[in-house]
Design a protein around this nucleic acid. Structure first.
Lengths: 174, 174
DNA sequence: TAGAACGTTTAGTTCGAACTAAACAAAGTA
DNA sequence: TACTTTGTTTAGTTCGAACTAAACGTTCTA
């Protein structure tokens, strides 16, 4: 490959890796996506291994996560046992997938946790000496819960908007 | 403290810690914020040490970051050498602060990195054999750059909206 | 000036996420 | 059936972020 393209490619992959690590994903995940994103043809697992320079095992686990998040897509060719991957190019869709995933897992649990704390306080029979403190707890927890609920709705809205865009609008050609 | 309040408190702090680690911040950072958030009175550094159960050094560094992000506020009492901290209760403001901070640092660099790659490709004098590949690179990089720019604007908009809300609207009482 | 009361900084340690190497499973081919 | 080619899983390792312990600097007080 030409020197300029190689430089651009390496610089790009480094940049993507920065982003992924920054948002709490493995560095290799970004590098793998970068390689696939800048490939005109779908890449096989071994090609990715060769291009990115990590072992097969690492590529295997990382690419499974990438696919789960909808960031890359597996392509199966008839009469070829290899799996190929290409990149999702609709980045809003990618964000949607990641939000949905995080929503489902950790974020949800956090919301639930605050709700539980609030329930405990509400259903407690407070010592008169701690009445003020109990009310304070209730107020603070309620306030945070409201915020989380708003955030939850915001995320749901974003997802819904994108669903609308890619669903209904897509039929008429974006 | 009553058993119920203690349970609620511990459950809450655990939940907040989950959130912070999930979003790439230290666990102790969440615990410290949780303790301050559920305290009616501002807490001193030593009180935090005692309540959260980490060393003074850790609290010192973590709380500095919390303050830099606008998540807690330092309170100085006259005639008292201790620093006290209370919690910011406007969570949208907190998000704004974090976005602004991240914007300033890593995210910016990532955007720049993609821009640089694009510049390299655009200013390259491509080998005729690689003309197609060069065009492909240019298209993909341009597409990603557009997305980043949109995201950048979105964040700026969110920040602007909150500035408006807390600035102009605040004068009339929210 | 000595000592106490703070918060900060630093050297060293811990701990877990992400990697490698290699065994493994599955599925095709000779 | 044995061998090859593929992707997955697992045991072990690495490495860096975040912690502890302790020294340190500063400021107030006696």
């Amino acid at each position: 490959m030409g020197q300029d393209l190689t430089t651009a490619r390496e610089n790009f992959i480094q940049g993507i890796s920065r982003i992924t690590t920054f948002w709490g994903f493995p560095k290799a995940m970004g590098a793998i996506f970068g390689a696939i994103y800048l490939s005109p043809a779908p890449l096989s697992l071994d090609e990715i291994v060769q291009q990115v320079g990590v072992t097969k095992g690492a590529v295997s686990t990382n690419i499974r996560n990438l696919e789960r998040l909808g960031v890359v897509h597996k392509i199966i060719k008839m009469g070829d046992r290899k799996d190929y991957y290409n990149a999702e190019t609709d980045f809003w869709k990618i964000i949607k997938g990641i939000l949905r995933e995080r929503e489902k897992n950790e974020f949800d649990r956090a919301i639930k946790s605050v709700g539980e704390s609030l329930d405990i306080v509400r259903s407690s029979d407070p010592d008169p000496a701690e009445k003020d403190l109990t009310l304070f707890y209730e107020e603070r927890l309620k306030s945070l819960k409201q915020f989380f609920d708003s955030l939850d709705k915001l995320v749901a809205t974003i997802i819904a908007i994108d669903d609308l865009r890619s669903g209904v609008l897509g039929k008429f050609g974006k």
